[in-house]
Design a protein around this nucleic acid. Structure first.
Lengths: 154, 154
DNA sequence: CTATAATCTGAAACTCAGTTTCAATAAGGA
DNA sequence: TCCTTATTGAAACTGAGTTTCAGATTATAG
């Protein structure tokens, strides 16, 4: 259930430039990796890919650039139910929020958009007088394939 | 917006016993701390409280007991939007799932139950043929008090 | 009421993700 | 081009959580 990829390449760069941030060689490289990623990547995967383009990049620069993108609301940080340790995964902030479902058996991550989710966020803003900046809905369970297979032994 | 506290004390102990697990002095102590906690506690807070009751308890036992409770679905692990580092918080699994809202300014955590959330989970199970085991919906933003105060400087 | 076998605990060492520090470097406006 | 300021990289550090293993404890069988 892949979502449509509608963002134009170079968008992150343009966003950061327009906010008066310096565009360094390292940032350009990291941003291009984030923009072209087809799956959710963690910091070390991002570093590895950035180093293929520019072997001199340090992991500390990756962390700093991720922090920058987070603070500017350009990417979202995911836990994906901590299926694989405590690391975080990143994705460009989508036009419309979606839900991440993580299969506890096969590890597959599925994304899902829903009107009910949009309405729920509206309800939170109204009923709790809470101004939403970021949301994270993660669901752990068993996907259609694994549901029908044998059940987990614990 | 505190939720009603309806669980009976000793419930966690009874649950683990009935599943054939050994009830040690340390586990009893840690479970009683989890059961009587009025807020979301992290592992080190839990350790400190457990040590007031039994100074010999080691942090490794706290982590192991938390893992046990998680695996048995008796507690839920929360990130609370990583407002205070990377640690996790714990709460007894409630009868009905709720949403955690974290104020990015004052750090207050608010809980919220919603029919729309229940319906959304139903939709996920049906439309995605996904068997839900655990959900985590966390929302970051500004609470009613902080919304009206000056806006954050970044 | 022991003896026994399996489980649990504590202490230390370790892992892993992420952060801090600070001197050297690079960006971009004057 | 110069100059100020932001950014980088390398190393050391932090903090949460895990592994290891010998010794202690539990539940149970006799």
């Amino acid at each position: 259930m892949p979502l449509p990829e509608t963002e134009t390449p170079g968008r992150l760069q343009a966003e950061l430039m327009s906010r008066g941030l310096r565009m360094t060689r390292q940032r350009r490289t990291i941003l291009s990796v984030v923009e072209t990623a087809k799956q959710h990547l963690d910091a070390s995967q991002l570093l590895r890919r950035a180093r293929r383009l520019d072997p001199q990049i340090d992991r500390v620069t990756v962390y700093r650039t991720l922090g920058l993108l987070k603070r500017h609301g350009l990417i979202d940080e995911l836990d994906l139910m901590h299926l694989q340790g405590e690391k975080h995964f990143y994705e460009r902030r989508p036009q419309r929020d979606h839900i991440h479902m993580a299969c506890l058996r096969c590890g597959k991550i599925t994304e899902f958009e829903s009107d009910l989710f949009d309405r729920l966020k509206g309800q939170i803003q109204r009923d709790c007088r809470f101004h939403i900046v970021v949301t994270r809905l993660e669901v752990g369970g068993y996907c259609a394939q694994c549901r029908t297979a044998e059940q987990p032994n614990e």
